[in-house]
């Protein structure tokens, strides 16, 4: 649902909404929260609803970030969001109770929408298993390092060693639950080399994608989360061999034993490359 790269777009800006479909992000996160001034929350909701009706976002998952459940705006937000065709709601400063609240509202509306908790407080890092476990609608999470470091009262650096624990903790959790995890956005939109480094760091920890806060970041992130051709070719070779072996246990490729972890890795590679295992011939 979240894919390799999810692009934040302010729900208050028609120009940005208009162009958002043109970028190659796997998902778009329309923002009703930080990007929208308090006096413009009503206008942003209305604009977004009309936009989702009018514009075509074919092939992209639509996620809407509502205001935190500690604010006065979230109820109106969710009211609007539930009437749209969005794929998921992103809940900022998520707590287990927030996820349960939103989830039961969705249940009562017979909605198929998913929930993406935004993990950006010290408490929510500690409670991550309860947050993910709060609803089967949670198919992925986003780590928000800016608010997290603010909550911790520590300095946020570009190199990011101060968020290493939280970042790794969440990456572990997404794999424990088998869900997707978006790494925190890189906020210096001018620094593409820094973005590259930061993306690779998140990827090495186990994230499955990263949020972008500017369209210019999309291509870089997407490329880094898309497996290279060598990896894809090897994965295809593995899956072909699996099929030929027909469940006969262990076998080898080029003299190397192929066991369950290697097969699992090949599956993930193909998944990330958006290649269906059944389409391999």
């Amino acid at each position: 649902m979240l894919g390799r790269v999810a692009l934040f777009v302010p729900a208050s800006s028609p120009a940005m909404i208009n162009s958002s479909a043109a970028f190659d992000a796997d998902a778009i996160i329309f923002d009703l929260e930080d990007a929208v001034a308090i006096s413009e929350k009503d206008a942003a909701r209305e604009l977004l609803r009309e936009a989702l009706d009018f514009l075509s976002f074919k092939g992209k998952n639509i996620i809407i970030r509502i205001n935190s459940l500690t604010t006065a705006y979230w109820e109106k937000d969710i009211d609007y969001v539930l009437k749209t065709s969005a794929d998921a709601v992103m809940v900022p400063k998520a707590r287990p109770s927030d996820i349960k609240t939103i989830s039961s509202m969705m249940d009562s509306m017979d909605s198929t929408m998913g929930i993406v908790p935004l993990i950006e407080t010290a408490a929510s890092v500690e409670e991550i298993t309860n947050i993910i476990g709060a609803s089967p609608r949670v198919k992925g999470i986003l780590f928000g390092a800016e608010d997290y470091t603010a909550d911790m009262g520590i300095e946020r650096t570009k190199e990011g060693s101060e968020v290493l624990y939280a970042r790794a903790r969440l990456a572990n959790a997404i794999h424990a639950f088998g869900i997707e995890g978006l790494d925190t956005p890189f906020t210096d939109t001018e620094d593409i080399e820094g973005l590259r480094k930061d993306t690779l760091q998140g990827k090495s920890l186990g994230y499955t994608g990263k949020a972008a806060i500017n369209p210019r970041q999309v291509e870089t992130i997407k490329q880094l989360y898309t497996p290279g051709q060598d990896d894809i070719n090897y994965a295809i070779k593995v899956m072909k061999a699996v099929r030929q072996a027909g469940g006969k246990g262990a076998f080898s490729i080029d003299g190397k034993m192929i066991d369950a972890p290697i097969i699992a890795r090949a599956r993930i590679t193909l998944e990330r490359a958006r290649i269906g295992v059944n389409t391999i011939d």
């Binding site: 028609p14 208009n18 009503d42 206008a43 209305e46 604009l47 009309e50 514009l55």
Partner: peptide, 17 residues
């Protein structure tokens, strides 16, 4: 240069406000 959807949303909110 607003597209139709934007015009509609803006007018509606202006009236609501």
């Amino acid at each position: 240069g607003a597209l139709d959807y934007c015009l509609k949303a803006r007018i509606r909110i202006a009236i609501e406000r």
